[in-house]
Design a protein around this nucleic acid. Structure first.
Length: 1067
RNA sequence: GCGAAAGUGGCGGAAUUGGUAGACGCGCUGGAUUCAGGUUCCAGUGGGUAACUCCGUGGGGGUUCGAGUCCCCCCUUUCGCACCA
């Protein structure tokens, strides 16, 4: 898909972050191998870091040094990196001990003594940076992420960024000069010196994030405690999953299948931001849960890797687009890998790989064979800035939707695909799909099928007829004039001498206005037009009516001519009123002197149509016209054929040649793939031909059939081509003899769940459906539609800061002064808006940073916890830490903070009355199970939190219940879940454990609370047995003291009882 | 302009689809633990009020015993479409 998150796309964005680009370049000299090595991500990382001098960590640190006053302190702390001189392991371990949680009930693993007494130096969680440290570093006032306090938002810097230190707790700090409100808590200068050598350095990982600088040996396992070591655990399980091929696609065919697919990304140079993984995480939860539920799951990832940005970047750096692409893919893959997504990486594919695009070319041959591909001299949208043509769909308001570059009309010979031949099926087959209603509507609208009639109007005094298309032939009796588009071929012929000058002037004027102006200036602009002096004969009344020329009639739609019925069409009404043309009512229902009436109604003034409603009148009049040869039924579409060529290098070459006599023919299948030639430049040639024309040797060829000289096509296919069928290639990506294996296709298709952004609602999804239907007609796929269920994840937003010139700033470059935001350096005012995250808006949050700091599981949870999957929400890094705390609590249920061993909290049996805990467990199982279907992940996570809170409060937790919980947690937080599962003694992956089931009976309560209302207002609650009879409940309600008070002795007129919910007493 | 969706605490969001508004998380307040920061744990947290209570789901009407939920009008935001005959 060209643009997963549109903004990452444009090459101009690269310029904004030279650090990153250069860092990447250093880290991956020569790009990454195409078939990635099977190394787990963390290992790859190490390699990468090892290669670049200094490694990425150093580089990044260097960058941060510029970021403000925190830098000095940070650097200082780096210097006494305690890891440099670690104490012997044993001692470390003692220091690393975590205090046992306070146990109010006096039970638990605390034992007879308090280790604190033995160790004057308190230990702190060994793992995981402490929150304050993180916060301080992560978002010093000048750091990004820190300004959630947008103008309307009151939780401002005062509350967060500039929060005063906690007031002294008692007298210790009574005399502290650092009085509350004066000294930012994060100011390290005021911190007492801390921690001995055993202390784990807080924030360590942040300063030496993933690349390089890893400690020479791994932290011993027993030290992984209360706050679990996410770095070690994430890496360990990712490595293990890769080694054991845990997510390999199953080959047995006895189980039901589930094909869950993410819209594959265009690997832009900007890398991922936290907006990308939202959909991927959701599908990962579905995939992991479905596996546990016994499904064979196909879960794959690939790259939509042809495309303009790589080509432009290649020009800029003077390297091959392939190199740029490989570099970007390596970055994307590395970032994705850290999230622990359960892809079968063996099936990774890239559309720019000749092994892939060979088959894209092959499908083109099929389209050709079916007569669906043709060349035509057509007016195209040419974008001079890009040097290429664009499909209609890629142009909006005269600009390229991706970059905003201007687009103009030109006549050029182009490849076209006859998608219009499938228009009806593309509309009709939408009916069986489980897609968002809005997307279905957009597709229907885009295809724009309208059913109506072609009607012929004879021109008075000429041997010519004007054919019009109309959806309302029933209003022909109200047709009081005819309008031709300015470009209509009959204009010249019919215009009278007297009107010739006026018409010519009008046409010249209309010609000067671009199509864009004419359409986008919209319906509200006053209508313009000019009379031709000619008349046409109304085919039903026989009356002569004037012929006008007006640009509200489009030359490109229908027949370029309409008959006007001002009484029942708003545009005609506006035009007729302006130019004093007659308005004749033919459908009752409105006041046509005031406005057009477009609704249904009884026909009048219409002779043989009188008394009929719209539908019946339409039928009847068409029959009447057909009988007399004056018209016919007709269906028109807004959809046009698909302009399928681009004047670019980095795309699929067409498998076609042109012979010396101008004949165009396709190459045979065995000539595939037609490889892209190597070039030394990727710009168009001096004479304006596409870049491929630079490859003289490649271009000149012979017709394999006849041996005659021929030239190759120098256009390439658009980026949509590769994404039209990738879901099929995933079925057998390693086969070179077929595009996909038919048996695999029969088993796996169609895609059960397809998740991606709504920006593809029309383009990609329409094109892919079109190809799929062609393949279906060829017997190559067995389903009519490719994507049974579609879901759009919402966009993630963050505040952006922009000055009057449109320049964006990072949030650490601005500050809030009073109610306004200004640039720190210059004091210039900036405007702030919540915008979708993108590199170009300087408001991205990098998932790598989140993984470093909170771990992949916390990030995954937060992505889904933020809100409904389909909604856009504002990113709040604090929310990630909340999810991390939830995981920590879940961890502590099983793992003792003190020893790193079993917590002792897990019991073999139920102890006492634990029905509340059991209810929470079953509620969570139910909610999570349902979420796998309805994708309401946020509430599912909330219910798991309830269980953990409940379990934390409990003295003991039945081990079996805890394990059930771990299993439902595992799709969301797989690393932690696997680790805990293993620590509980399981040898096999939690992925192999069956999905737990819930019991509705366990969700019930014996005693329920009933709300009691008087006059509909809540006055009290009563507790009754769940199975209490109505009379009993009502009696209890009437007896409730508060209720008695509000009844005030008045007679009860009515008693309403909603079982299990409430009682309402009406007096 | 047309169409669709949505407006709920300081914030992100719940609410069994007409039945106790504010689940869960963030933030905040207090307490315990701590030399201390942090962590962890406990308690609190829609607004007004000393309290009784009253007011609260964008605004205004309405239906109903009962409305965040249904109906009508208006406002705002987001996304589509933009003279498609």
């Amino acid at each position: 898909m060209p643009s997963p998150g549109p903004p990452c796309q444009s090459p101009r964005h690269h310029a904004h972050d030279p650090h990153r680009t250069s860092r990447r370049r250093q880290g991956h000299p020569g790009g990454a191998p195409r078939r990635p090595a099977p190394h787990p991500p963390h290992l790859q990382r190490r390699h990468a870091a090892g290669r670049g001098q200094g490694g990425h960590g150093a580089r990044r640190r260097g960058r941060r040094l510029h970021e403000g006053r925190q830098a000095g302190a940070r650097r200082g702390r780096d210097r006494d990196d305690p890891r440099a001189h670690r104490p012997p392991r044993r001692r470390r371990r003692l220091h690393a001990r975590r205090l046992p949680a306070h146990d109010p009930a006096g039970r638990g693993p605390v034992g007879g003594h308090d280790p604190r007494r033995l160790h004057p130096r308190p230990r702190r969680p060994h793992r995981g940076p402490r929150r304050a440290d993180r916060r301080a570093r992560r978002r010093p006032p000048q750091r990004p992420g820190h300004r959630p306090d947008l103008p309307p938002d009151v939780r401002s810097a005062a509350a967060r960024g500039r929060r005063p230190p906690r007031p002294p707790q008692g007298r210790h700090r009574g005399g502290d000069p650092a009085a509350p409100g004066q000294v930012p808590r994060r100011d390290r200068a005021h911190r007492p010196p801390l921690r001995g050598p055993g202390r784990a350095p807080p924030g360590r990982r942040r300063r030496h994030p993933r690349r390089g600088h890893r400690p020479p040996h791994r932290r011993p396992r027993e030290l992984i405690m209360a706050s679990y070591d996410h770095q070690a655990i994430d890496a360990r399980w990712q490595e293990r999953w890769a080694r054991e091929r845990t997510f390999a696609t199953p080959t047995d065919r006895t189980r039901p299948k589930y094909y869950v697919l993410d819209m594959f990304p265009y690997p832009s140079g900007s890398g991922l931001h936290v907006g990308h993984p939202k959909g991927y995480t959701a599908t990962d939860v579905v995939a992991r849960a479905r596996r546990m539920m016994g499904y064979n799951v196909l879960r794959v990832m690939g790259w939509d890797s042809f495309g303009l940005p790589a080509e432009r970047q290649a020009e800029k750096e003077n390297i091959h687009p392939r190199v740029v692409t490989e570099r970007n893919v390596a970055t994307f893959k590395q970032q994705l890998s850290r999230l622990g997504l359960s892809y079968d990486w063996d099936r990774e594919l890239a559309t720019s790989d000749p092994r892939y695009y060979r088959w894209t070319q092959w499908i083109f041959l099929k389209l050709w064979e079916r007569g669906l591909a043709y060349q035509a001299e057509v007016p195209v949208n040419f974008c001079p800035a890009l040097g290429t043509v664009l499909a209609n769909e890629e142009v909006k308001d005269g600009k390229y939707i991706e970059t905003g570059d201007d687009v103009e009309r030109r006549l050029m010979k182009q490849w076209m695909l006859r998608i219009t031949a499938y228009a009806d099926r593309l509309v009709d087959d939408l009916d069986g799909l489980d897609w968002p209603a809005g997307t279905l509507a957009m597709q229907r609208e885009w295809i724009g099928r309208s059913v109506g009639a072609n009607v012929d109007f004879a021109v008075v005094g000429h041997d010519a007829r004007v054919q019009v298309f109309t959806t309302r032939p029933d209003t022909l009796f109200g047709g009081t004039y005819v309008v031709l588009a300015p470009e209509h071929p009959l204009v010249d012929a019919v215009t009278t001498a007297a009107q010739r000058a006026a018409v010519a002037a009008y046409r010249a004027e209309a010609g000067r206005r671009s199509e864009r102006e004419r359409t986008s200036e919209a319906a509200d602009a006053p209508k313009t037009g000019v009379f031709t002096g000619a008349y046409a004969e109304n085919p039903v009344t026989g009356q002569p009516i004037p012929i006008w020329v007006a640009d509200y009639v489009l030359a490109t739609y229908g027949t370029g001519a309409v008959f006007a019925c001002p009484a029942h069409d708003e545009r005609d009404w506006a035009f007729a009123t302006r130019f004093g043309l007659p308005i004749v009512e033919v459908v009752r229902g409105g006041d046509v002197t005031q406005a057009a009436y477009t609704g249904d109604g009884v026909h009048v003034n219409s002779e043989f149509l009188d008394g009929l409603d719209n539908a019946a009148a339409i039928d009847k009049v068409i029959g009447w016209l057909v009988e007399r040869g004056r018209g016919e039924k007709s269906v028109r579409y807004r959809l046009r054929d698909w302009l399928f060529s681009r004047q670019r290098y980095w795309g699929e070459p067409f498998p076609t040649i042109e012979l010396d006599d101008g004949t165009v023919k396709v190459l045979p299948e065995d000539a595939l793939p037609v490889l892209l030639p190597e070039l030394d430049a990727y710009k168009p040639t001096a004479d304006g031909r596409p870049p491929l024309a630079r490859a003289g040797d490649w271009m000149v060829t012979t017709d394999p059939a006849t041996g005659r000289p021929a030239t190759r096509e120098t256009n390439t296919m658009p980026q949509w081509a590769g994404s039209c069928w990738y879901y099929l290639r995933f079925l057998s990506p390693d086969r070179d003899d077929v595009a996909w294996d038919p048996d695999e296709e029969r088993y796996w298709m169609n895609v059960d769940l397809y998740v991606g952004g709504s920006e593809h609602a029309t383009l990609h999804l329409l094109y892919a459906r079109f190809w799929h239907k062609v393949l279906h007609d060829l017997g190559l796929v067995h389903t009519r539609e490719p994507f049974q269920r579609l879901f759009h994840q919402g966009m993630i937003h963050k505040p952006s800061f922009k000055d009057a010139r449109g320049k964006y700033y990072y949030d650490h470059e601005v500050e809030k002064v009073g109610e306004r935001w200004v640039v720190k350096a210059t004091g210039e005012r900036v405007e702030t808006r919540n915008e979708k995250m993108s590199k170009s808006r300087y408001n991205v949050v990098n998932p790598d940073d989140m993984c470093d700091e909170y771990g992949a599981d916390a990030l995954r949870l937060y992505e889904l916890f933020m809100g409904p999957l389909e909604d856009g929400t504002e990113w709040a890094t604090d929310g990630v830490s909340g999810c991390r705390r939830f995981l920590d609590r879940a961890w502590r249920l099983a793992v003792d903070d003190e020893t790193g061993g079993p917590s002792g909290k897990l019991a073999d049996t139920v102890v006492g009355d634990q029905r509340a805990l059991e209810r929470a467990l079953h509620a969570a199982i139910k909610r999570v199970s349902e979420a796998v279907d309805n994708l309401r992940m946020n509430v599912a996570i909330a219910d798991m939190m309830v269980f953990v809170n409940e379990a934390t409060r409990a003295a003991t937790v039945p081990r079996d219940w805890y394990e059930q919980f771990l299993r439902i947690l595992s799709p969301f937080a797989p690393h932690v879940a696997e680790e805990l599962w293993e620590r509980l003694g399981h040898r096999t992956s939690i992925q192999a454990a069956p999905w737990p089931t819930w019991d509705e009976a366990k969700l019930a309560r014996d005693v329920i609370t009933i709300a009691v209302q008087v006059q509909g207002k809540l006055r009290g609650t009563i507790e009754v047995a769940a199975d209490a009879a109505e009379a009993e409940v009502l009696a209890a309600a009437r007896a409730e003291p508060k209720v008695v008070e509000f009844l005030a002795g008045k007679p009860i007129k009515r008693e309403i009882y909603v079982k299990g919910r409430l009682v309402n007493l009406v007096v």
